[in-house]
């Protein structure tokens, strides 16, 4: 298991509110832009997709790779970040 990044801890540490999609761990400028183009402009929209996939990390990673062109590490980081956020705040 990879150690969590500062970005991960920042995101998981508080309610996501209106944070942009790029505040998600694993989602940088480029991936963020691709997601925004598909309507996923806010972190909570991506959370919605995560929830639609029943919080299934594997499914979500797959979707993120397809939708944004993320690699496995980035997708895994994002899904872990959303899962831990859900564990804390949902």
């Amino acid at each position: 298991m990879s150690t969590t990044s500062q970005k991960h801890r920042d995101f998981v540490g508080e309610p996501m509110g209106d944070k942009s999609v790029t505040s998600l761990s694993g989602i940088g400028e480029i991936l963020g832009k691709k997601l925004e183009q598909q309507g996923f402009d806010k972190a909570y929209v991506v959370l919605g997709q995560f929830l639609l996939l029943k919080k299934d990390s594997e499914m979500f990673s797959e979707w993120l790779k397809d939708a944004s062109g993320a690699n496995s590490r980035q997708a895994g980081s994002c899904s872990q970040c959303l899962r831990e956020w859900c564990d804390a705040f949902l």
Binding site: Q49, L52, L53, D56, E62, D66
Partner: peptide, 17 residues
């Protein structure tokens, strides 16, 4: 395959799976 609702944003993924 465990799956949630099939909507526009999830359909493509489920088709692939």
């Amino acid at each position: 395959i465990t799956h949630g609702p099939i909507v526009d944003s999830t359909r493509k993924l489920y088709e692939k799976k």
